[in-house]
């Protein structure tokens, strides 16, 4: 009569390169509504980190407030986490990243936490190109406060209440491209085959990586008139293509015909091999990305998959010229070099 997850796992669970099973990346049992898209995204993050063989203690989960921001409790239970203030996850993530640049930062936010109360924070963390993965669990409504339309709800879309949304929506991917993000993608919680490689590539990308994941709210926004329902997204989803994520350790041997297949090497040496839906797509061009997104929007469709990628953007640390080591690995002498050094710094500004 209770809701308890058994401790027994599949007896032949596969092990990753560092000897962990998927179970080692699990978190607590989700308390979200049954069928919530967010749980699938949590499972995809978990699966990606397992497949990438990242040691759980090398990951920090950052979140704000909302249904989405509760999810870090439900995955990577052995990783670091910070459940911050509403809309303020980017600031906390920035601080954490400045202190320890060696961790993998996975920020989880919602459409309210990002596009309403946190819009300012979001804009600036993109501009600074903080090295993190920023996942928006985007359900177009405020699920935690009974499903009011959010800033990403499409104009005309109606949730359970039945009233069409009169306002224009914010497209977070377009915003991010415009503000200079190096990795921008859109996906759907119900399509793990697409989402998992995207997350893996985003983790390997240096700099700010946004994945805007349409994630249906089964309780308030899974209605026939909603553009963020399971059925609507499935029927109106068009992918820019499919891709394989090729980790660093796997030597790239296969050669592809130029044209529809393109290979992009990421900063850490791993690569993504894109099988594009159209030869006209140019993932390195912000203009091409914006055009494509808008083109599908006009048709009432959703463009998913990788939208824009520039692997060579300098991240915050590079922009600021910070130390190459995490602060906790520096000695007292390095952290506090003494009055003489302070004097010389001060004098350099005179």
């Amino acid at each position: 009569m209770s809701f308890i997850r058994p401790n027994i796992r599949h007896p032949q669970l596969p092990v990753n390169d560092i000897g962990f099973t998927r179970a080692d990346y699990e978190g607590a049992l989700s308390t979200l509504c049954a069928g919530c898209g967010h749980d699938s995204i949590s499972a995809s993050i978990l699966q990606s980190c397992f497949e990438l063989s990242i040691e759980p203690h090398k990951i920090a989960k950052m979140s704000g407030i909302g249904c989405s921001s509760k999810t870090p409790a439900y995955f990577l239970g052995n990783s670091h986490g910070f459940n911050s203030v509403h809309g303020r996850m980017p600031s906390v993530a920035t601080g954490a990243n400045m202190a320890n640049r060696d961790l993998v930062y996975i920020g989880v936010s919602g459409d309210g936490d990002t596009a309403s109360i946190g819009m300012g924070q979001f804009a600036h963390v993109v501009r600074r190109n903080l090295n993190m993965v920023y996942i928006v669990m985007n359900n177009g409504c405020y699920g935690l406060t009974k499903g009011q339309d959010s800033a990403t709800a499409d104009k005309g879309s109606a949730s359970k209440k039945g009233v069409p949304n009169p306002y224009s929506s914010i497209d977070l991917c377009e915003t991010a491209i415009q503000l200079g993000a190096g990795f921008v993608a859109r996906s759907f919680s119900g399509d793990k085959e697409q989402l998992i490689p995207l997350i893996k590539a985003a983790v390997s990308h240096r700099g700010f990586a946004l994945i805007d994941v349409v994630s249906p709210c089964v309780t308030f926004n899974n209605t026939p008139k909603s553009t963020k329902s399971y059925d609507h997204v499935r029927e109106h989803m068009n992918a820019t293509g499919t891709f394989d994520f090729v980790p660093l350790k796997d030597e790239i041997t296969t050669q592809y015909e130029p044209g529809k297949t393109e290979e992009i090497t990421l900063h850490d040496g791993s690569a993504i091999r894109l099988h594009k839906a159209s030869e006209n797509l140019d993932f390195s061009s912000p203009r091409s990305a914006m055009n494509e997104i808008e083109k599908y929007k006009e048709k009432g469709e959703v463009l998913t998959g990788l939208l824009y990628l520039n692997p060579q953007t300098p991240d915050t640390h590079e922009l600021l010229g910070t130390t190459s080591k995490p602060l906790n690995s520096l000695s007292d002498k390095e952290l506090c070099p003494g009055s003489d050094v302070l004097k010389s710094i001060n004098s350099s500004f005179q």
Binding site: R5, P6, N7, I8, R9, H10, L13, R22, L29, S30, A34, G35, C36, G37, D39, S40, S42, A43, S189, G190, K192, P216, V218, N222, Y230, D231, R234
Partner: peptide
């Protein structure tokens, strides 16, 4: 079934 994947994600033994 609406194919939301919830059952896949929760299943402790990946059945």
């Amino acid at each position: 079934c609406i194919e939301c994947d919830a059952c896949i994600d929760i299943c402790p033994t990946d059945c």
